[in-house]
Computed example of a mutant assay.
Amino acid sequence: MDEKMKDVSVLELLLKPELPDVRKVLPEKQVEVPRLSEFAGEPVVFTLRGLSYDQVRMVQEKPRGDQAAFGVLYGCVSPKWGDGALLDKDRGIATPIDAIKARLISGEIDELYMEIQQLSGYLRRTISDVKNG
């Protein structure tokens, strides 16, 4: 009796139209990059968004050394690293990944990626154990 009722209630929850489609609606947050703020003389704030399941898999398929940069590429709403204004082939900035590596220090890339991972449900518990009663 209990198991069947639990299954039904979970199914009902998953069918609720209010439950967001996380392929399209993911958590966002704004973060400041202090080094850039100091350089600019005003707050430099990035808008980050969690990654979809498919985006996480795309990041994981990249070489280990580039995963954080690709995570920032996919999870950064603002600035848009693909914006042509950030590219400068004469300075060796031909791709959005080049732009990230040219403008952010490695610790900033890693920390931004950690924030994006948290928004994606990683680096924290997203499920909890059920006590047998």
Rank of each mutant, 00 (worst) to 15 (best):
M1E: 04
M1G: 14
V8D: 06
V8R: 05
S9G: 02
V10P: 05
L11S: 09
K16A: 14
P17I: 12
P17C: 13
L19M: 15
P20G: 11
V22R: 12
L26A: 03
P27R: 01
P27E: 10
P27M: 07
K29L: 08
Q30Y: 04
Q30H: 10
E32W: 08
L36M: 14
L36E: 02
S37K: 12
S37D: 08
E42M: 08
F46K: 02
T47A: 04
R49K: 11
S52V: 05
S52T: 13
Y53W: 15
D54V: 11
R57P: 14
E61W: 12
K62Q: 07
K62N: 03
R64I: 09
G65M: 06
D66T: 11
A68S: 10
A69K: 10
V72N: 06
V72H: 02
Y74P: 00
Y74S: 02
G75Q: 02
V77C: 06
K80L: 03
K80W: 11
G84T: 02
A85H: 05
A85L: 02
D88C: 05
K89I: 12
D90H: 06
D90M: 15
R91N: 09
G92K: 04
I93Q: 00
A94T: 13
A94I: 12
T95S: 01
T95P: 00
I97N: 00
I97Y: 07
I97H: 03
A99W: 04
I100V: 01
R103K: 15
L104Q: 00
G107C: 05
E108P: 09
D110V: 04
D110W: 09
L112W: 04
L112F: 07
M114V: 07
I116D: 10
S120D: 02
G121D: 08
Y122I: 12
Y122T: 04
R124V: 08
R125E: 15
T126M: 11
T126I: 03
K131P: 11
N132P: 13
N132G: 12
G133H: 08
